[in-house]
């Protein structure tokens, strides 16, 4: 009798797991809401549990910084002098750029930093590349928003709970990010393939690309603001073009959640109103 009961309960849970595998893959709003609530509960635990790792990481960073402090200071002084020159040039270009945009009536993209967040969990799976961050809808985070860090793009929010969110990394096979070649402005798609180096898709025939070329976000898709650093071309083979991302996705600590929207200039809004009035 006991054996029969055991067999029945095992069978029941196997069927339940199979049903979840088949129907849970649709990622319905109910499934996402339940996932969000459970991760909300575990994020504080993961946050506390990851503190020792954080402390070790900080110690290693500190030791490395102390070891190179003199050479780094020398390099930074030289870089500072160069940057001062570049700042003067770029401020002149920014004024020119604004004037030309006003003349052409180009819609200005507005980038809002929604929040800064800490990465508290990593999927640590070869087939699913995502991380959990400790910010959610309570902090203004929404599904689809972009995640960046100081080096470049990281990924986008795919599920937001009230106090935690899941970020699909740019290396995941489901990640597709509109990008462009910095030198020529050719638009392409960055396609994750679960390897550390995502590949380039939709390179127009006849266009030239070479190792070391800089890749930026194009701003298409309205998720990532334009001109954010993505990475550099790592290798070009018959199988495809591989990109080395600027951000080290295996070493994420703090990230920023970014909202992006196009704000039309006052000239356009006035034109829109007048055309509606005429109708």
């Amino acid at each position: 009798m006991k054996e029969l009961k055991h067999r029945f309960s095992s069978g029941f849970f196997i069927v339940l797991a199979l049903a979840l595998l088949i129907f849970g893959s649709n990622n319905t709003s109910f499934v996402n809401a339940v996932r969000g609530q459970i991760t909300d509960f575990f994020v504080p635990i993961l946050s506390v549990a990851s503190r020792p790792l954080q402390a070790v990481d900080d110690l290693i960073d500190w030791t490395q910084q102390v070891a190179i402090v003199f050479s780094e200071n020398k390099r930074l002084l030289a870089e500072n002098a160069q940057l001062k020159q570049a700042q003067i040039t770029s401020s002149q270009l920014a004024i020119d750029n604004q004037r030309l945009k006003r003349l052409l009536n180009v819609g200005e993209g507005q980038v809002n930093i929604i929040a800064a967040a800490r990465v508290v969990s990593d999927s640590e799976s070869p087939f699913f590349k995502s991380v959990l961050i400790n910010r959610g809808t309570d902090d203004g985070v929404l599904k689809g928003q972009a995640i960046i860090n100081e080096d470049g793009i990281v990924g986008r929010i795919i599920n937001a709970g009230s106090s935690s969110s899941r970020v699909l990394l740019a290396t995941d096979i489901n990640s597709h990010i509109p990008i462009k070649l910095a030198s020529s402005g050719i638009n392409m798609i960055l396609e994750g393939d679960n390897s550390p180096y995502p590949k380039l898709g939709f390179l127009p025939i006849g266009e030239e690309i070479s190792v070391g070329d800089l890749i930026l976000t194009s701003g298409y898709g309205m998720v990532f603001p334009p001109d954010l650093p993505v990475g550099q071309v790592l290798e070009i083979t018959e199988e495809g073009i591989k990109i080395k991302l600027s951000a080290k996705l295996y070493n994420l600590n703090y990230v920023s959640i970014v909202g992006y929207e196009i704000i039309r200039s006052s000239v356009t809004r006035r034109d829109d109103r007048s055309s509606k009035g005429k109708k």
């Binding site: 196997i14 797991a17 979840l20 595998l21 849970g24 893959s25 459970i38 991760t39 799976s125 087939f127």
Partner: peptide, 12 residues
């Protein structure tokens, strides 16, 4: 749920 993998895979 925590790893973001297919729901039910590890359970099964």
């Amino acid at each position: 749920i925590l790893s973001g993998g297919p729901l039910g895979m590890m359970a099964l």
